[in-house]
């Protein structure tokens, strides 16, 4: 037999392709495969149960969330504590301002909010003293900013005290005469409380304008005590 060339070899290899496969087996195997994939029995084990899916989700998605939340809370609390003695112009002063606003929002009633206004007004007085005593950190803009902050807190406190008064004044009506008479004592008491508080506030404002900061702070404390009573 003669030697086979590369061309002949390739031709003979290609001829092997023409060999057909048993069609019965192809048909039978097709039916078996159809049965297997349409009934899905063979991949039942690969399906994940609810708890396995939940576990995967919690590992991939939920796990970082509490960690991030914990870090955020830790940073927030830390910065609020660190900002307690800060003055305008310092990086942490913004945290102090945010903290004050948050406290006002979360306060339960008008009395609590008014007390907070007084507390923050005293804070402005303390900050002003600190700023004016420090020659390097002192500037007109900062003094003005603190003065405005003080006045804003005083105005808010006054408005809240007025609101408390108006709420405690019972409406006069024949139908609700009993209720009115029952509430009358309390309304009078409210008026008794708020009047000295408002007077103390006005005095504190006057002292503040006179730059008598210590006396202004004392008057604010007095107003706070009146509200507590």
């Amino acid at each position: 037999m003669k030697t086979m060339t590369e061309k002949e070899l390739i031709k003979n290899l290609a001829a092997l392709k023409s060999a057909s496969i048993n069609p019965d087996w192809i048909k039978r195997n097709r039916e078996v495969l159809s049965y297997q994939i349409f009934n899905g029995a063979e991949y039942a084990d690969t399906k994940l149960g609810f708890f396995e899916r939940f576990s995967l989700i919690s590992k991939r998605v939920l796990q970082p969330t509490p960690i991030a939340a914990f870090i955020a809370v830790f940073l927030l609390v830390g910065s609020v504590f660190a900002s307690r003695n800060s003055t305008p112009g310092e990086p942490l002063y913004i945290a102090k301002a945010i903290s004050e606003k948050a406290q006002l929002v979360t306060a339960f009633n008008e009395t609590s909010k008014a007390k907070l206004n007084l507390e923050f007004a005293r804070e402005r007085v303390a900050e002003l003293e600190k700023v004016t005593s420090n020659e390097t950190n002192s500037s007109e803009a900062r003094v003005q900013e603190l003065s405005d902050g003080f006045k804003k807190q005083i105005e808010s406190a006054k408005a809240r005290i007025s609101k408390i008064e108006s709420n405690k004044k019972a409406p006069v009506s024949e139908e609700t005469n009993e209720v009115v008479s029952a509430e009358a004592g309390k309304a009078d008491k409210g008026l008794e409380i708020s009047l000295p508080a408002q007077k103390a506030l006005e005095e504190a404002e006057k002292l503040f304008n006179e730059k008598n900061y210590n006396a202004a702070a004392e008057k604010l404390e007095e107003a706070g005590k009146q509200l507590e009573e």
């Binding site: 037999m1 086979m4 002949e8 070899l9 003979n12 290899l13 001829a15 092997l16 023409s18 060999a19 057909s20 496969i21 048993n22």
Partner: peptide
């Protein structure tokens, strides 16, 4: 009865050798 094999052996000698 296996078609693929019968197809191969019924071809030229070269094919059988290759196989």
């Amino acid at each position: 009865s296996l078609d693929v094999h019968s197809a191969m052996v019924s071809n030229l000698d070269f094919q059988k050798v290759v196989q």
